[in-house]
Nucleic acid binder design. Structure first.
Length: 421
RNA sequence: GUGAGCGUGGCCAAGUUUGGUUAAGGCGCCAGGUUGUGGCCCUGGAGAUCGAGGGUUCGAAUCCCUUCGCUCACCCCA
């Protein structure tokens, strides 16, 4: 009789015990950075009304068009597993009347996202993002603040050789003019033969700038730049932002091709990429979304935020050979020889745990040597040895495994010694 | 959605071009290395119907077909 076996669904991954140190570390660093900047934590549901993302992210975006996990529940509601974090946070902002709080409202989250696309290096169907959003303040200093938060959290994580890419794509006042200019420019280019690009020329000229095909490069290189078409308000915002960033000492590279694939972005857009580049290079990306809250039924409210891919941060940490922080703390292995000793060890372990000590009973039926090997393999810091001798004398052997020192203590002394590090 | 590469014990993997006795090796696991003690070292052991199905052949991990899975890249994004 053959039984089928199972494996994790495509694009998902198990985070095994050995993977955990990196994850704990990155989560800790990100959370601490957010708190330092005054961004409170928010958690939103894993799934939302499917229409939220259609309205918020944009119907024609790849994310909504072909990457959401959308399903009908038993009651007939159309739901989507959340593909990104900004729209849900804005929904919560509106739903809970956060516009009545003092503005801006600063929030951060760290949670899984779901996108149905073909997995590859640094790309997953279930991915984890840390995100931060500042809603309710259009001041360019907030743009700088949010960029500083993203920048410093990656620094704190230990990443080096990062590049901040920056651009402004204008707002509803000036972007149409720019797009017209872009379109007529590309229409005048004979060198532009790439098929996808011709199609994008109609649907989304902004993203044409992102094309990597060789034949398109000359035309793209000398294409009109959005920053040259900004209206007065956007231009003022843009130059103020650059001023703040200079003030912060954060280096940036202007990238007139940076467009980003979500429809809600206005004005400031940015990405942080590692030195090596790579195809899945972006480890953090975001921008301003001054129209989004209104799009979701609120009154006009500015906002800005970013999301960082935890998997990509860890991928780069590993690539840069940043060591994962090791676990610390006392961990006691209880070794026992004989049935009576096992009894005592079992009870002692329970007592230790109730006092907050990490205690593990050694596997039964093994030689003391094997039990001590086991202690090493589970990275125990201490071993308590109970055998006939100890049962008779009432004094237990406590071995410090890192120092290879051993002493004999009575039960209370032993508990005391372990409790005080 | 498109293209390429790869699937051998828990993990890494030789062998596949030139089909042929019991399918290397390493890590890990378990057990020993004397009398109750770890991390290193030494020895031994367990563990694989070579992704699955079919075909060719006296004989296939090795050749052919099908299928599933994984990876990488395009695209897009974190």
């Amino acid at each position: 009789m053959s039984t089928r076996t199972f494996q994790a669904p495509r694009g998902t991954t198990d985070l095994l015990p050995d993977d955990q140190p990196y994850w704990r570390f990155v989560e800790h660093v990100a959370t601490r950075a957010a708190e330092t900047f005054g961004y409170d934590r928010i958690d939103t549901p894993t799934f939302e009304d499917a229409a939220l993302f259609v309205r918020g992210v944009g119907e024609a975006t790849d994310i909504v068009e072909k990457e959401t996990y959308t399903f009908e529940d038993r009651g007939g509601d159309l739901l989507s597993l959340r593909p990104e974090g900004t729209a849900p946070v804005c929904r919560a902002y509106l739903e809970h009347g956060m516009h009545n709080r003092s503005q801006p409202v600063r929030l951060h989250y760290i949670c899984p996202m779901y996108r149905y696309d073909r997995p590859q290096a640094g790309r997953y169907r279930e991915l984890h993002q840390f995100g931060a959003e500042a809603i309710g303040d259009g001041d360019p200093a907030v743009d700088a603040e949010i960029i500083e938060l993203g920048w410093s959290l990656l620094k704190d994580a230990g990443l080096t050789d990062l590049t901040l890419l920056l651009n402004s794509i204008g707002d509803s006042a000036c972007r149409p003019g720019y797009i017209d200019a872009l379109r007529s420019y590309f229409e005048s280019q004979d060198g532009l033969v790439h098929e996808d690009c011709l199609r994008r020329l109609e649907s989304n000229p902004l993203r044409l700038l992102d094309c990597k095909e060789e034949p398109c490069q000359p035309a793209i290189a000398s294409a009109p730049r959005s920053v040259d078409y900004l209206c007065a308000d956007c231009a003022g915002h843009w130059s103020a932002l650059l001023g703040w960033l200079d003030r912060l000492g954060i280096p940036y590279r202007l990238d007139s091709r940076l467009a980003r694939g979500l429809d809600y972005y206005t004005r400031t857009v940015f990405e942080i990429v590692p030195k090596g580049g790579g195809s899945q290079g972006t480890i953090l990306g975001g921008g301003r979304y001054d129209g989004l809250i209104e799009q979701l039924g609120g009154s006009p409210t500015p906002g800005i935020g970013f999301a960082a891919g935890i998997e990509r941060i860890i991928l780069n940490l590993a690539a840069q050979e940043v060591p994962a922080p090791g676990a610390s703390g006392t961990k006691v292995l209880l070794a026992h020889v004989g049935a009576e000793a096992k009894d005592a060890a079992f009870a002692l372990g329970s007592e230790m745990r109730s006092r907050g000590l990490s205690a593990v009973l050694a596997p039964s039926g093994r030689s003391l040597k094997a039990q001590m090997r086991y202690a090493s393999s589970i990275r125990a810091t201490h071993a308590v040895i109970i055998g006939e001798r100890e049962l008779q004398s009432g004094r237990l052997a406590l071995r410090d495994l890192s120092r290879s020192e051993q002493r004999e203590l009575c039960r209370d002394e032993l508990l005391q010694a372990l409790a005080a590090p």
